[in-house]
Design a protein around this nucleic acid. Structure first.
Length: 551
DNA sequence: AGCACCACTTAGGAGGCAAAAT
DNA sequence: ATTTTGCCTCCTAAGTGGTGCT
């Protein structure tokens, strides 16, 4: 890098990272090979470190610190097409770090031979330490953890602010619908931008430094290249948002919005031009603050997320099982995640997982098919009365059935072989003669016969019924199988729907936790089914609400 | 008005670990 | 007993939005 006068790596293909990879693999193996005691000791050391550095006292109360381990040196990656990807991120030295601590508190010792940049006593900010990172020259901080009272208070304030918006949102909508026809372009643009922020939950879209950051946009920084106008008021959005996550959406917009977009386009020169060239986030937020103190674009995301969630929760089945209620909860959560465009990359094993579920469903359907045939064998007269018993199961091809029967056979054979081996080991120990091979062979033959029998039964529809079976008993078995098919299908649907949608971000940042708490009380769902330990901790300020509490 | 700077929230991925499935 | 999965914690980048200076 020094020779080429480049300050960052451009082609990673030309780097050989295998020594680093191998080293890490070896370390992993070492850890794996450790004895229980060693692992325990390591764990305790870690805990000790956390006890020492992981807590602080705020107004006399012990609080957890969020990120007390400073960033180690490495190669900066960044998200998306970041111009600085591959830059060397240097080690942060104590001399760069400013400590913020109470006047009378004991100042933490810097590492031996080093000193802090500064020690200050500013109680108007929440950070405990700060430094500047060398790649983007961003200021970094050590803050308190999410479960601290300080963060809890500001969370509470955030949601209260969003609830305040509820009372004036109708007026704001009325205003921007009116302003949409304003003769003044800036106002017209602002109204159109407001429409996007409110109805599509777009982020504000501050300006970014060209060439120093990834080219991503929000509402105010949208360019014409990011939208396509279709027929009948349809607008296609396609742009990279925060973290270079792609936002793709096709929306039928209000007539006036559509008209405005056309007009703005006509007055522009190229696709690279800003859609709202006379609007920026500061002005837009200033306008919003005239409605209500502290109202900004971001409040709309919080408001719409929480509002949508509460509305969606109305689909909870009152008399359903806890699982069905949780499914409804997750559905509501998912609606919000989709609204906010919270995505995740498809897991490497997704297709695999999907195939397994489908196989499981087919296996259940196969069972059901045999059960139905059993009933008809027991009582052939039912064929006329209940034609559904004679109908084939969906998705169960002839080939699949044959393969599945073969699979069952193999499994059974394997079971026999294992048992045979185990029995003989035992006999050997007891000094007995081993069982003859012929015994095993007879069992294997039996398994083969069973497969033939299954195939025959499947073709003729006549099942070799056990004496104890009755129509009623089989009926119950079918019901149970149906339930299992239903449950497996639900898992499949959820998995499919969660393929690219991340629920966590909206749950942690956008949905007022009091909605969830009230919902739990109202529908009698234990709160730990929807909030894990750390979320319950983070949201402890929200736990004591009435079951009828509303956002 | 335009900016640099600052403080804070929001964001998705990696990896570890425990529970569930096989 | 072993493998798979799914949840959780950690990590730090990338946003939003405020302030104060020129």
């Amino acid at each position: 890098m020094a020779k080429s006068k480049k300050n960052h790596i451009e082609e990673f293909d030309k780097c050989d990272f295998t020594p680093i990879f191998d080293y890490l693999e070896r370390e992993k193996e070492k850890r794996k090979a450790m004895s229980k005691e060693e692992k325990q000791r390591l764990k305790e050391e870690k805990l000790q470190l956390e006890e020492k550095y992981g807590f602080c006292y705020l107004d006399g109360r012990k609080q957890k610190v969020g990120n007390f381990r400073i960033e180690p040196p490495g190669l900066f990656r960044g998200r998306g097409k970041h111009p600085k990807t591959g830059s060397l991120k240097l080690r942060v030295q104590p001399e760069q770090v400013t400590i913020n601590i109470g006047k009378d508190a004991k100042i933490p010792e810097p590492p031996a031979g080093h000193s802090w940049n500064k020690v200050i006593h500013d109680n108007t900010v929440t950070w405990l330490a700060t430094w500047k990172e060398n790649v983007n020259e961003n200021i970094k901080y050590v803050f308190l953890a999410a479960n601290s009272t300080l963060k809890g208070q500001s969370d509470f304030k955030k949601f209260e602010k969003a609830r305040e918006l509820k009372d004036i949102v109708a007026k704001i909508r009325e205003d921007y619908n009116r302003d949409m026809k304003s003769k003044i372009t800036a106002i017209r643009q602002r109204a159109t931008a407001m429409y996007f922020i409110d109805r599509l939950a777009l982020r504000a879209g501050n300006e970014k430094k060209e060439g120093e950051e990834a080219d991503t946009v929000g509402c105010c920084s949208l360019r014409f290249e990011h939208i396509k106008l279709g027929p009948s008021n349809v607008v296609h959005f396609d742009f990279l948002g925060k973290d270079s996550i792609r936002y793709q959406n096709t929306v039928t917009v209000e007539v006036q919005v559509y008209k405005n977009l056309k007009v703005f386009r006509r007055h522009s020169e190229t696709e690279k031009d800003q859609l709202f060239d006379r609007v920026n986030t500061q002005e837009l937020n200033k306008h919003l603050s005239s409605y209500m103190e502290g109202l900004t674009a971001k409040v709309f995301r919080t408001y719409n997320a929480s509002h949508t969630f509460q509305e969606q929760l109305k689909n909870t089945p009152v008399s359903g099982t806890v699982n069905e209620k949780i499914l409804a909860y997750n559905r509501a959560n998912r609606e919000v995640a989709i609204l906010c465009n919270h995505q995740r990359t498809i897991s490497k094993t997704f297709d695999n997982q999907m195939n397994r579920i489908e196989d499981k469903i087919r296996a259940l359907k196969y069972q059901k098919m045999r059960l139905k045939k059993t009933i008809l064998t027991l009582d052939p007269k039912l064929k006329k009365k209940r034609p559904e018993l004679d109908e084939p199961e969906s998705d169960l091809g002839e080939d699949w059935c044959e393969e599945y029967e073969k699979h069952l056979e193999e499994k059974e054979k394997e079971k026999y072989r294992k048992k045979f081996e185990k029995d003989n080991d035992k006999r050997k120990e007891e000094g007995k003669k081993p069982l003859p091979e012929s015994e095993l062979n007879a069992q294997l033959k039996e398994a083969e016969e069973k497969t033939k029998q299954f195939a025959k039964e499947r073709k003729t529809g006549k099942i070799d019924v056990k004496k104890s079976q009755t129509v009623e008993k089989v009926e119950v078995q079918i019901e149970k199988t149906d339930e299992r098919i239903k449950a497996a299908n639900l898992t499949k649907v959820e998995k499919e729907e969660n393929k690219t949608t991340a629920l966590g971000t909206s749950k942690i940042n956008y949905i007022d936790p009091r909605i969830s708490a009230a919902w739990c009380y109202k529908y009698d769902v234990p709160i730990d089914k929807i909030f894990n330990k750390s979320l319950r901790d983070k949201f402890k300020w929200a736990m004591e609400v009435d079951k009828d509490w509303e956002f």
